[in-house]
Every structure is written in C-alpha cells, then in structure tokens.
Amino acid sequence: MSEPTTAAITLNIDGADVTVPSGTTILQAAGGRGCGIPTLCYGDTITPKNACRVCMVEVEGSRVLVPSCSRPVEPGMVVRTRSERVDHSRKMVLEFLGSSVDLSLTDHVDEWNAEYGADPTRYGADAATLADQPVKVDNDLYIRDYAKCILCYQCVDACGEQWQNSFVIEIAGRGFDSRVSTENDVSLPDSACVYCGNCIQVCPTGALMFKSEYDMRSAGTWDEEHQTVVDTICAFCGVGCNLSLHVQDNTIVKVMSPSDSSITHGNLCVKGRFGFQHAQNRP
C-alpha cells in the first residue's frame, strides 16, 4: 500500500463531495473497511490483488466496474457504491464463491448474501465445487483447508515478496483448477516452509488455521465468546514483536500479531507464533 501523498483530490461518492490525499483508493475515500462496501481479498497488511471483485463500484465514464480497494482516486471522479450493476456483480461474486467453496467461517457472508439477494444454491447440486476436498493436516502447527480457499492471494503474497520472502506457496494450475500449492503439492514438511504462520494471519476465510483451533473446533470446544485477547511482547530474541494472545480457559489457543504494529505489521516467526507452549505446560 503506497503512502498517500499530500496533494488533495476531490471526488464525488454517492452524491457527496469527498476530499482526500492523492494516492488514496476509492475504498479508503469511502471510509475503508466497514463503510458498507463488502471486501474479501482486501486485508490490513497486504497490497490487495483485487481478485475477488466483490468491492466493485461504478465510476462514471468507465466501461466496466472498478475495484474500489485498488483504484486510486482521481480529481472529479464520480463514484456510485450502489447501483443495479454494482449490486448485480456483488450478488454474482457471492454466489460464485458460495457455490464453489465453503464460506462458513468467512465474516459477513450471510449478511451480504441477504443484502444482495445472493442464492448460491441456484446453480444446482451438480455445480462444480472445491468444497469437498479433504483438509491437509501434515504438521502439528497449522492446517490447510483449501475447501475454504477463495484464492485471495493474501497467503501467497504474505509468504512471498510482501512479507516473509519464503515463496513456499504459489498459485499453481490455471482457471478453476488454480490452487494454492507448494511445488508439486509436496507436504509442508517436505517444502521450505518455516512455519511463521504469516499466511494464517492474513487468511480471511479460515482456510489456514492453527492446529490448536482446528482440533478444538473439531472437538466442539472452540468458544470465541469466552476468549480474551491480550497484547504483549514476544519473549524470544531482542526484536520485540507484538503478540495478541487468544486465551480460553487460562490457555493460549492462538497467537496473532496486531496488523498496525510498526515492528511486525502482523507478522511473526515460528517461535513467536507457535512457541507459547512452554508457558502452559501446567501440572
């Protein structure tokens, strides 16, 4: 995400003039996440690939809809965040995803389906789906449930150039067969994965998950309502990474990092992400 520069730009969004620094995206100008424009592949710490196309808006003079998460504002732009075309394309994207992958752990999907009248079941029982593939459990730290993957590219970008620079996973294949994969789909222990978990941090759909969370969900003991989240500092090495400890029943069940930390930008290494066990080997 490029830093907005100082020059001010005025545009019109849904009938109201808005003045923002140049370099701002339409989504940011409209109020960012939570402003009413749905987003899926847009994360806090990754330059969006704008692959999901759920945040599309109408810009006067543009032949096609434009992705609000990525398009920088221009002077005099006239933007409509809701219109027949906008609503139609959002509905279709929600249906396309809802009919091909498992969105059960994706935030807001039910409310958006209702708002845009999306009915993922209308493609029939025979509609091609990726939601029936088995969960990949090949190590004790995290699992990969690609039945839930919407191909937002965030894990690939977090593992790659934007943060971790490990490049252990890439998009492989093409079209509907595209999938996040190691080389030849080798298991994580056979890959160069360093288990930083920075892919889990950015995954918006629960496709990538701590093994501890996966096990508790499977056992029916995962209970977010009774979890606390406490921010503290990692005890390994001298970098001083910020941790958000998710605690249930006096036990750490998941470790994330605040995306607004100037040190981590939401990233950790394997020790910070998974090395908490020593604090809870309890009698």
């Binding site: 730290l141 222990p189 994965c193 394997v270 090395g275 066990q277």
Partner: peptide, 14 residues
C-alpha cells in the same frame, strides 16, 4: 532459542 528451555515445548516440523 538458546538452551531450548522455552522453544523445546512446541512441535516444530523443522
């Protein structure tokens, strides 16, 4: 990490 007292507790595949 260091003498492994803190880091030995988790199951690192590497």
């Amino acid at each position: 990490y260091n003498t492994g007292v803190q880091s030995g507790g988790f199951s690192s595949p590497n």
